[in-house]
Design a protein around this nucleic acid. Structure first.
Lengths: 197, 197
DNA sequence: TTTTCTTGATTGATCAGTCAATAAAAAATA
DNA sequence: TATTTTTTATTGACTGATCAATCAAGAAAA
């Protein structure tokens, strides 16, 4: 049995609690006590491990980002053709893990908060850049670079737009229809190219 | 000179102040004093005219919605062909009036807040429905209904996605490139159909 | 004189963040 | 091993600040 301190366990629990609290409330207006309570500790302990509330929020967003990136990498690993790479990136964003109501709500909340908080803003840029370059890694094999840039931007916007729209619907968001919508866009784009050549 | 009470003047000023305050802060966490101060009145007066803070926020969102709808109607008036109708709706969403940083920020903030606040949620649904039916009013003249539904959903998601993405960029958002991106999607879609028939 | 308009002062609640104190575990020492 | 010492983990109680909402009272207009 490996001996570990409590720190990593508490940090993880607090971050998870933050995501679910934000997801449920649909806002960053969650109190430290609420979060700490969900994690089964006192608010003082949350402060002890994370310092200020903003630090906890930043750590939470960073966690979301890291997870998404890990999923994307894993998914790209299994993709062989350029087309598959694009398909993989699209799918990851709507996977069961990512496309859950609480995760979506947390993302959106951070998205908006990022407008004023420099630290969050920086993180969000990283996300945007990664999504773009992941998409490009497949698209450049399918079309000339300038057009690929353009298409990547459209797909990214489409994904973000579907996130925000799904958040409005009650109940579980429908990942399948979201995926097919993005795929359809790509297919249309590709068949147009095929015809031109 | 028509005699009017102060009420409409104050309400308008307070709503405008709310939009700009939210836009600047990028969050609904603006105090009544802040808003009232911008409108040049005391916070007590803001409460006098709007009651609770939530009521002011709801009124502000309703105002945003009403303006957008008015612009859309005016724009549709001048559109003759189905294609022009769609073009008009797209353009309205990125018009100088709508696509300003503060308006965008306010929209996004409301979007997220709508997840928890039932009243805002209801308003947002109205927006979504209107956008959809406005788009459909043109699209049905260009393609069969089921496909039009699909396309309308894509365009709507694309518009929302571009809003959220533009909010991240520093400086003035670039409306022209956003429009051309959506237009490109539609053109691709249409030329695909043309070819099939 | 009545109605409309406006505010300063106040209240009560909520919260982030601190701190001193305790408990538990680990390490060092005898 | 038994013990003391040190480090880590944890919290309840508190503080200070912020803010929404109220209200009684005054100024202006009708």
């Amino acid at each position: 049995m490996p001996k570990v301190g409590m720190e990593p366990i508490r940090r993880k629990a607090l971050i998870d609690a933050t995501i679910s609290a934000i997801g449920e409330r649909g806002s960053l207006d969650v109190t430290m006590s609420e979060i700490a309570g969900r994690a089964g500790v006192s608010s003082a302990l949350a402060h002890h491990y994370f310092g200020a509330k903003d630090d906890l929020l930043e750590a939470t967003m960073r966690h979301l980002l890291t997870e998404l990136d890990a999923d994307a990498r894993a998914s790209l690993q299994a993709a062989n053709t350029p087309r598959d790479r694009v398909r993989a990136i699209i799918a990851v964003n709507f996977s069961d893990k990512q496309f859950r109501p609480e995760t979506i709500a947390a993302w959106l909340t951070f998205y908006v908060a990022a407008q004023k908080t420099t630290a969050l803003r920086r993180l969000l840029r990283i996300y945007a850049r990664r999504l773009h370059s992941n998409l490009m890694s497949g698209l450049v094999g399918l079309m000339p670079r300038p057009e690929a840039e353009h298409t990547a931007e459209s797909i990214a916007a489409l994904i973000d737009g579907l996130y925000i729209r799904r958040a409005l619907r009650d109940g579980t968001p429908n990942a399948a229809s979201a995926i097919s919508l993005v795929e359809d866009y790509l297919n249309t784009k590709l068949s147009q190219r095929e015809r031109q050549s």
